[in-house]
Simulated assay, not measured.
Amino acid sequence: MTVIISEQNLDIIRQQGIKNYPYECCGLLLGVINNCEKKVIKVVPVENDWENQKHLFTKKYDGLKRNLRDSFAINPFTLLKIQKEARNENLNIVGIYHSHPDHSAIPSEFDRDVAHSVYSYLILSVQKKEVTDICSWLLDEDIKFIQEDLIIQKIN
C-alpha cells in the first residue's frame, strides 16, 4: 500500500508533534482508498486521551505505569464523531498518526497490539523538539507491521 499526503497536511502533523513534545501527539488521517493507494485529504489532530483510557490497558501493559511520553489513546466518542463528519464529506478514516518522543519512527509492541489492519499508521520521531523521521506502517495478516511507501505531494 502507498500513502499519499500533501506537504501541508504533513506540516500540521509535524507542528503537533513538536508542540506536544515530550508527550505523544495523535490524530486521524481522512481520505480515500483507490486500489493500493490511500490518499490523505485531511488531517484531524486530536487530544491524546491516554489518562482517561489507560485503565483499558492495565492487564497486558500495566497502563497505570505508562504515560503520555510512551502511549496514546483516542477517545472513542471523538473517533465516532470524526468518522461521522468524514462520511458527510465522502471521506473515510484511512489512518492514525502519532509521535514517538525521543524514539524512532518504528512501531512499538504496544502499537502493534492496538493496531487495526484497515488503517495506516503514520509515526513521527520527534527528537529534542525536532521531527527527524516519518514512516507509515500497515499491519499485515501475520500481525506484523510492514513499512508502506509514503509519497509527499507538494501543492502550490
Rank of each mutant, 00 (worst) to 15 (best):
V118F: 04
G63L: 08
E130D: 12
E24W: 00
M1L: 10
N48T: 03
I134M: 15
N52K: 15
Q8H: 11
K144D: 15
P76I: 02
N20V: 13
V44L: 04
S6Y: 01
R112A: 10
D113L: 00
V46C: 03
D70S: 12
Q83V: 00
F77V: 00
D149S: 07
E109M: 09
T78S: 12
I82L: 09
K42G: 04
D111H: 01
L91C: 10
Q53Y: 11
G27F: 08
M1V: 10
L80K: 15
D49S: 15
Q53S: 12
T78D: 11
F77G: 03
A86E: 09
I82A: 06
R112T: 13
E37Y: 09
P45K: 05
K154G: 07
D142C: 12
V44D: 08
N52C: 05
S125C: 00
V32A: 09
L28H: 05
K19D: 13
V3D: 06
A115Q: 04
S136Q: 05
K65I: 10
Y23F: 14
E141T: 05
E24S: 05
P76E: 11
F57W: 15
I155M: 12
Q8K: 13
S99H: 06
I93P: 05
N48D: 04
K84L: 07
L80C: 12
V114H: 01
C26P: 02
M1Y: 00
L64A: 11
L91T: 00
W137H: 05
F110R: 00
E24A: 08
H100E: 03
A115G: 08
H98E: 05
K154I: 10
L124A: 06
D70V: 09
Y61D: 10
L30K: 03
K128A: 12
Y121M: 00
A105W: 10
I123W: 01
S6C: 07
K42N: 12
D111E: 04
N20P: 00
I82G: 03
E37P: 02
N9S: 07
I106V: 15
V44C: 14
E24H: 02
Y21H: 12
I152A: 07
I12V: 15
I155S: 06
R87H: 10
L28E: 04
V94F: 00
T78V: 13
I123E: 01
I74G: 11
E148V: 02
Q83W: 06
K54M: 14
K38P: 01
L124I: 14
D113Y: 07
Y121R: 00
I134E: 03
K19N: 09
A86H: 09
L30T: 07
G63V: 05
C135E: 12
E47I: 06
L139S: 07
S136C: 15
D113P: 03
L91N: 10
D102Q: 04
A115S: 15
V131A: 09
L80G: 10
P22S: 02
D49G: 04
V32S: 13
Q153L: 15
I93N: 10
E24R: 02
G27A: 13
S6G: 08
K128G: 09
E109D: 14
L139D: 07
K128I: 08
N9Q: 15
F72A: 02
E85F: 04
K42V: 07
I41N: 08
I33S: 11
C25L: 01
E85I: 04
Q147T: 04
P101T: 09
E109W: 07
N90Y: 14
S136A: 14
Q147E: 14
D102A: 08
P22L: 05
V126W: 01
S104F: 03
